[in-house]
Write a protein that binds this DNA or RNA. Structure first.
Lengths: 231, 231
DNA sequence: CTGAAAAATTGGCTTGACCACTTTGAACGG
DNA sequence: CCGTTCAAAGTGGTCAAGCCAATTTTTCAG
């Protein structure tokens, strides 16, 4: 039961995913007690501090409940997820589908309103995003800025709010694992390339193409999410 | 900078709170680097593993960003707007434009999934709406049901929630006058007729036409709203 | 001045140990 | 036989010290 030590993702994230998987596969009943920290660490092939870091992550997202002196228990809240089999994954999928539908439509609305100035702004945002990636920072903020700047061109504050809320939902407590699994330099580079394709279509004044590419971008994000899901 | 050791809260939670406080009080600038783990642990009077547990909690909730070999950085605060704050600066006109854009796109997504059974359901809803109007009741509930039933055919719960929230926003305190001005038998009859046109397009399996008519319906609603506005 | 290599810095992870709280079960008294 | 008590075992909570790997800074040769 060893874990790849050279992965880009931190060890506690891998361990947390592994434990989530074991719970969802039914290796541990809801409400039951997990093996003691010392034993579980040995079974998973990691040290106790690393296991504890994973347990804190699992405790924060409500997968597990830790009782001092007693043990680690599978939280009742997980029951919902177990019912629909990885409902967190599915809701993340639904979220990305919703974004694909809405944001493609929004480009249609914004359509003709793009000016050279706003296009320059978008390009600057993407350059900042590229710098983030190359310099090891998380480009999340500029990712958000790109999507919101496009929405803003609709001139409709309700739509801007909507796009922002959907974007932020990836980071709600429910999807806290989203970032952990999704956030690697490789996936960010894909996202950047797709952003640039969208911008290129906008610069060419080809609104339908920009719509298609926005849709494709969010569908690809969904696919990357699904494929990164631990088995 | 000592921490109460006999508290019931776990140490990592106390440390995480303390660091959040320091950031919020401005002791650490956004984007700046925090002291190294070893130093920070000593400053806070805890061991390095305990500090690391706190950092994981802070990393998960997005307060902090950890870069291997580089340092711990204060993440750019993603300001999360609350729903209550939603309506500031947003007009009913913008709301209806947003609905027109989103709900037309949703029909495209739901598209081929309409079955004879669901179409029968939609027709029944419209009959109930007609009955409401003729018998002097407010058809608001069936109006909502019609829009939500269409959204539900997308098979995407995020979209259903979205359409529902946008519908309900007409009735937020800000738009309390909406109903008073808009809610007349004449306008409801117009709305019903437009609903029936949408349904007819769906029954004819003409998705693009249905999209156009949904868009037109909500644009017409907006127009009726504007024209009824007192001058 | 430039660029590459070495040193210092920093986070990532492990081992081993001790403390505090909870549970368990056996001894004890009724 | 049953309930109580209390000590031992089990479990999470925390700490200390150290080594490794990635990054940053410094040094120094060209």
């Amino acid at each position: 039961m060893n874990i790849n030590r050279t992965s880009e993702r931190r060890l506690y994230q891998q361990v947390a995913d592994q434990i989530r998987g074991l719970i969802q596969k039914g290796h541990f009943e809801v409400g039951s007690r997990l093996p003691a920290e010392r034993d579980l660490a040995q079974q998973l092939g990691v040290s106790r501090p690393s296991l504890r870091e994973a347990l804190i992550a699992l405790e924060i997202d409500g997968t597990v409940e830790i009782r001092m002196g007693s043990g680690i228990y599978v939280a009742a809240a997980v029951e919902r997820r177990t019912l629909s089999q990885a409902a967190t994954g599915e809701s993340a999928v639904e979220l990305m589908e919703a974004r694909a539908t809405v944001e493609a439509a929004v480009i249609g609305l914004a359509g003709a309103r793009f000016t050279p100035a706003t296009l320059r702004g978008l390009r600057m945002t993407l350059e900042a995003m590229r710098a983030d990636i190359e310099e090891g920072r998380k480009p999340l903020g500029h990712d958000r800025q790109f999507h919101l700047a496009i929405a803003a061109q609709s001139g409709n504050s309700v739509i801007v709010r909507l796009v922002g809320e959907l974007f932020d939902e990836r980071h709600s407590p429910i999807s806290s694992q989203f970032r952990a699994r999704f956030d690697t330099p490789a996936t960010w580079r894909h996202a950047l390339a797709e952003h640039e394709a969208i911008l290129a279509a906008l610069e060419a004044r080809d609104v339908p193409l920009a719509q298609m590419r926005m849709h494709a971008h969010l569908e690809e994000s969904k696919r990357r999410w699904i494929e990164s899901e631990p088995r």
